[in-house]
Each structure stands twice: as C-alpha cells, then as structure tokens.
Amino acid sequence: MQAVRDVGQFTALIKEVRAKGGGLLTNWFFFLGDVERYTQQRNLFWVAHPSGVLFYKEETDLLNLYYYFAADLLQPAALQKLQKPVVLDLVSAGVEPDLAVQRMYTYWMSNGFVLYKTYRRMVLEIKEPTIAAESSALLPVGYRFGFARVEHLAEIQSLWRSSLDSLSTALPDQAELSAILENQQIPCVFAADGKIAAALQYDQRGNVVTIKHVATAAAHRRHGLAKALRDFLFAKEAIPRKYLLWVDENNLPAVEFYKASGFSFDGRVTFQLLQE
C-alpha cells in the first residue's frame, strides 16, 4: 500500500483502469479538491488489484475502501490484511439494491467481506419556524446550552468514543475535530458541573444540514437532552433548510426518535461491509 502522491497520480491510476474497457465500477467518485486535501494530509493510499485499483482513506480507527474496477476484468482476489479494520460502503438508491450494487455486494461478500451494518438515510425539511431560538426552558434544571470549544476536545473525543461505534462512524482526528470546534459545529448541553452532558455534531452546506453524531453521556441519559439538542439545532439555523442523517436500521430507539422528530426515510441505503 502506497500513499497517493498527488491528484495527477490519482487520475492516472483511474485512467489506466478505465482504459481496460467495459466501464468503470466504483463505490465513490472523489472530487479532485478532496483528493488534493487527502494527499496533502498523506491519508489516501492505493494498491493495485487484478480488477483495477483500490484506494484506502485512513481514518482514526479504520480504513475506508474505495474500488475502481474495470467491469470486464472483475475477478476474485483476497485483500491483504491491514493494521486497521477495512470498511466498504455500498450505497443504493433504494432498499432493493440496483443490479450494479447487487453485483458488487455479491462480489465483496465472496471476497472476504461480511455485512456489518445497514444504514438508511433520513430527511427532514423545515419550511417555517417551529421552535423559539435557544430556549433554555427546553432543558431540565441545572443544564444549559452552549458550544463545545477547542478546550473541550478531549471531552468530546471521549464522549464520541464511549457512545458511537467507531467502526461504523469515521471519528474526526485531532486536527479535524479542532477545526470543527472552532467553527462551532458541536452544540452541547453542559451539566451544572460544567462538564458536557450531551453533544451533537453537524455539518452545513448551503441550506442542507447533515447531523453527523449525537451522544449523551451515560450519567445524563433519560433527561431528554438529545431532544433538547435537536430543538436547539432546529431553532438555530435559517429557514428553509433540509436536515439529513444516516441511522443504523437496527437501532430502533434512534429510528423512532428521528421519526418522532419528523424525519422520514428518503430511500437511500448504505450497506456497510467489513473485511473479515
């Protein structure tokens, strides 16, 4: 496995696969700006494969796998074991995967991968204000809203680690998390002792807000803090806007929570495969 040097090398590797004919099979199209950033951070790697080329994007706890295969050359090959778990996401437009996704799902399941989790995307569009902004009345006595700052970095990392599945969720590394905190993208509920009781990380592009992580510290569960954070976020942003999130379809309490919040499934499904 070698680091991708630059965008030029990345494009050359894919062009070589494309030149073999039969169309390109992939689970992801990187925008070149993202590739440039990853190569500067030295966290994008490649390895040759009998069917084409594999790219690995290194995250804190895992490697995300992206394949670029020549459709005519698809052939079995076991992948080398790497130091971190390897996760492959296959995204389908519907619950019943289309033929291309079905083909690659079968391929990877026959080549050392197992289905780890199935995620479904949920969406909520808000066109009119529904909740008064920053209402502390939504919180139980002793709690207050605020934004996590850089000095809360270790606390946020610890909360994500204790509450989220780090194999399923690419947790931000220290530099990424610092930038997220500086941008005030993690609204929190603080307990009376000043510690973070619950936190929510989101990302915004235009009027689309993607909810990335939501977690409540074990000692503060069953106080409605996640619901309060949700309302805090809804009240914070301009209208109209759209909220997106991915939820593990087997995490029924989470699915019910989001449904009760007005979210509905939009049909998009991710089959998350894990190298055995």
Partner: peptide
C-alpha cells in the same frame, strides 16, 4: 456547493 447533490448522487 449547497449539498443538494452529494457524492452518492454523483456515483
């Protein structure tokens, strides 16, 4: 830029 189409859509 506004996130209406994402990388999943681009595939």
């Amino acid at each position: 830029d506004d996130g209406i189409l994402d990388s999943f859509d681009i595939v």
